[in-house]
Design a protein around this nucleic acid. Structure first.
Lengths: 337, 337
DNA sequence: CTGTTAGCGCGTTCAA
DNA sequence: TTGAACGCGCTAACAG
């Protein structure tokens, strides 16, 4: 293992000088800078991040906290996209990222969790899929012990930013597109009038926004919309659709998983109405014929989140970031086989 | 931040004594052990893993290396399961895991990669989805600089183990089940005789094993099997099925993704034959009616892999581990809508 | 059985 | 503009 000492020796300078040029300090002559950089290159030196972290107390280590199990099956794609986006960006920002699942920390209280993270030398957090029930996490964020970025949770303070898309607008857009595109196709005279909207868990921050989006559309198009809560559950959405789907011209769901449930119910009832979901998991590609996927969205969101976290860790103040939704989230029709 | 010094002070002993009881050294009196443990509990002390790693040169830090992008879409579930299994086990084993994607390291040579990992204080590797083309990775493994566990790659040396299921047997089992279960259902007199087998990439270590499994079954049941290579690609499988699927009573694929392609082709041709895949991604649940998923398998494999890595890092010698396939990997029929 | 001491590799004063 | 020296929190000989 090649250390800073070797570089120093080779360059004929002291250790601290090497450290300084490596960190871009100003008062270093061009000449020694050259010498050091050459030595670094020749020796193929890579600084030991562990030692650096220990010494500076500033690890550049972040934790990606997420809960892939709580959600029902098949959401893996979304998490994978998050991970990819986050880790890619972490690399770019020279941050060292560890992945934590809720399951690993769910039995800890704030204090324990704090110590655990500190012991791991984590100084920044990105939290995916946090819901209103997650008190410990929320407290953790509020203590200010860490720089944080929350995804899809509208909260910000000095050291905490939030990153999300405009869920209200997104739901509005996707529902509108579904309805308008199917206007003629539907066997009603004046376009769809009756809509069944199946929303996600109330404890989820995004659900209310999406509901609001659907409400706005409802007003705008003078729809008759029935709002039901499907709790992000495929089964519940299925049950709801069995019960209320017959009278609806269109079914709009607050997530893809629920859209699948709704679709299956309609198929079983031998009714064919447009259904639309939200997240754009590829899964749907094999069921519906027309669709756009929003996988890129998740990658991009995570990427932005880590970038923002990097900023906060450098001293920037927390803020709320709303991203455009790149694609109209998952949308399809023609579910007839 | 509470350090080992605080504990020492509180317990009225020296730092090294604390360190010793924490690591379960033998020659410590019960009495001081008590004192130290109490102090640890009262102070809620958690050792700083960074400092520990720096000092001991034995980080307990492992890298999970995987390639989620190279594979075609929709394989995310498998990787997610790997990740979950690996990270869960890492926690149990008190290992600190970082996730690396091939994309982050694909432009490095062995030397660079080695330095990069060392700088991160990584001493162990678990590699998922490695294929025969990955020279750099293979060289890295061969240098012996790291303890390694390779998944689905039959290679072992002093510090390297492999973990995989018996792909030959698994392919044999799943194909057999598909064929036998459909024996009467098929519109042929004496059971299926003609099978189209679509295999995965040649550069993948598992493909050959799976082909062998199919060959064994072919001999055993005196089938007439056509072997074609679909390169793990949905599209290629689709094309192959269009070309050769008409004459086949059953289509067996070396991966689920190819099974989807095959199925879609059959549907488009208006032919309904049983198809079987391999990996058991949930995806299929929404297409086929009957199926078993092997998601658990992946979790379990990753879990075992990390456990094995932990052993190697503690000095155990590398070996080849073959796990039973818990479930008959993905299997379904009745693809008729 | 316990404490003293010397680093691990690096960042950061403080003198020079 | 540079370098010597100290310390981050911990482990591992070596004494005692």
């Amino acid at each position: 293992m090649i250390s800073i000492r070797d570089v120093a020796r080779k360059a004929g300078v002291s250790i601290s000088t090497v450290s300084k040029v490596l960190h871009g300090y100003s008062n270093i002559s061009e000449e020694t800078k050259e010498k050091v950089n050459n030595a670094v290159r020749e020796l193929n030196y890579i600084p030991n991040s562990i030692a650096s972290a220990l010494s500076s107390k500033n690890s550049g280590r972040i934790a990606l906290i997420m809960e892939p199990k709580r959600q029902t099956q098949a959401i893996d794609q979304i998490f994978m996209q998050y991970l990819l986006g986050a880790i890619d960006c972490a690399k770019e920002q020279n941050l060292d990222a560890v992945t934590l699942f809720f399951s690993m920390i769910e039995d800890m209280d704030v204090d324990q969790l704090t110590r655990y993270l500190l012991a791991q030398n984590v100084t920044g957090l990105v939290i995916f899929g946090m819901s209103k029930d997650d008190n410990v996490l929320m407290q953790l964020v509020e203590t200010g012990s860490f720089s944080c970025v929350l995804i899809d949770v509208p909260y910000a303070n000095e050291k905490t930013s939030s990153v999300s898309i405009d869920h209200e607008l997104a739901q509005y857009d996707v529902a509108k597109k579904t309805i308008v595109d199917n206007y003629e196709w539907l066997e009603v005279d004046h376009g769809p009038q009756s809509v069944l909207y199946i929303s996600g868990k109330e404890s989820s921050y995004v659900s209310q926004y999406r509901i609001n989006g659907m409400k706005r559309l409802t007003d705008e198009l003078s729809l008759k919309t029935t709002f039901k809560c499907g709790n992000f559950s495929e089964k519940e959405a299925r049950a709801i659709t069995f019960k209320y789907g017959k009278d609806a011209d269109v079914v709009v769901c607050g997530s893809d998983l629920m859209a699948i449930g709704a679709m299956n119910a309609l198929i079983d009832m031998d009714i064919f109405h447009p259904v639309c979901g939200f997240d754009g998991i590829t899964l749907m590609g094999y069921v519906g014929k027309q669709m756009n996927t929003a996988k890129q969205d998740f990658y991009q969101i995570a990427h932005t989140a880590v970038e923002e976290l990097s900023n906060i860790m450098k001293g920037a103040k927390g803020r709320k970031i709303t991203m455009p939704h790149l694609l109209v989230r998952m949308y399809y029709k023609d579910i007839i086989c």
